[in-house]
């Protein structure tokens, strides 16, 4: 059983609770254990970095340092948390002065940021550590009946100088996972586009227009569902779907699954067990 420190994303603790619950169902089936890091705090959600760069460094040095103390990699299942914490790590690793400054403060908690733990997305762990062949061998209900639109979202791809796992112009990791689970991917030009989440409360019309494009293509291509490795993308594509499609005058609807739910379905858990019923579009 390979162990990881699991970062608790704010949204998975509130609106998308089904995401962490679904991982809990199947993690042992795939030989991994995600140890919940209850000490973790909000990463700053791609905002704290410019509101206060120093607090941004402190908060995320602390998040990573807790994982380092356990001797484990930090695993994240939200794209923005992934990008944000990795950005902080990059800055900390490049600056001995910044490291010294935050470590001086973290000392009171018995913590030290050393840069020894990697910060990784759950999707990357499934592909690189568990392995596609091992996953394939565990599939109980192949997803062969489904045509699936893989929506990667931005912050698992861009900036590639911080992420670097997939080619942001032509990502394949999620496609590979879908295929390992027996599913069929559709050609989906919006796979590496934006969902509009980060401007939902500031420029709602623009955000919904961005989301509607991604939804519209999946509907046109007659996909059975969209799958995404990011709960923020999920919140827009599922929660705001009706509003976005109405604004763009697009008819129809399409379910949106979390990556963790799609894996769960293939491993034999029911949609109900996985929390799919909690989605707005079912």
């Amino acid at each position: 059983m390979k162990r990881y420190a699991y970062y608790l994303s704010c949204i998975n603790e509130s609106m998308t609770k089904e995401l962490d619950r679904s991982i809990a169902l199947w993690q042992k089936d795939l030989g991994i254990e995600l140890v919940h890091l209850h000490e973790s705090t909000c990463c700053g959600g791609s905002n704290l970095d410019y509101v206060s760069p120093k607090h941004f460094a402190l908060v995320n040095a602390r998040n990573i340092a807790h994982a380092e103390k356990m001797g484990l990699d930090l695993v994240v299942s939200c794209n923005t948390c992934l990008m944000t914490i990795r950005t902080a790590k990059k800055k900390l690793d490049a600056s001995p002065e910044l490291r010294a400054e935050v470590n001086e403060i973290l000392k009171a908690e018995g913590l030290e940021y050393r840069g020894t733990s990697e910060v990784r997305h759950l999707l990357w762990v499934l592909i690189d550590d568990v392995g596609l062949d091992a996953i394939k061998a565990k599939v109980k209900v192949p997803l062969s009946q489904y045509r699936i639109a893989p929506f990667y979202g931005c912050h698992i791809l861009r900036p590639s100088t911080v992420l670097g796992k997939d080619n942001p112009l032509d990502p394949t990791s999620l496609d590979q996972l879908i295929e390992a689970l027996g599913g069929n991917t559709i050609p989906y030009t919006h796979k590496n586009r934006c969902c509009g989440f980060h401007t939902l409360l500031v420029a709602e019309e623009e955000s919904l227009s961005v989301a509607a494009e991604a939804l519209g293509e999946a509907i046109d291509e007659k996909a059975d569902f969209i799958v995404t490795p990011c709960p923020l993308c999920h919140t827009v594509l599922d929660g705001y779907q009706a509003k976005a499609l109405k604004q763009a005058d697009i008819h129809g609807s399409i379910p949106v699954l979390h990556l963790s739910e799609m894996v769960g379905l293939a491993l034999g858990y029911t949609a109900k067990e996985l929390g799919v019923k909690r989605h707005i579009v079912s």
Binding site: S14, T41, S52, L201
Partner: peptide
């Protein structure tokens, strides 16, 4: 501005609870 208030809410929430208070963010 909405953008500025939205960004500062992150700072404020993290300083108090370590977590984002999403219910009142809008």
């Amino acid at each position: 501005t909405a953008g500025s208030k939205h960004a500062e809410a992150f700072m404020s929430d993290i300083s108090k609870k370590g977590k984002l208070v999403e219910a009142t963010l809008p």
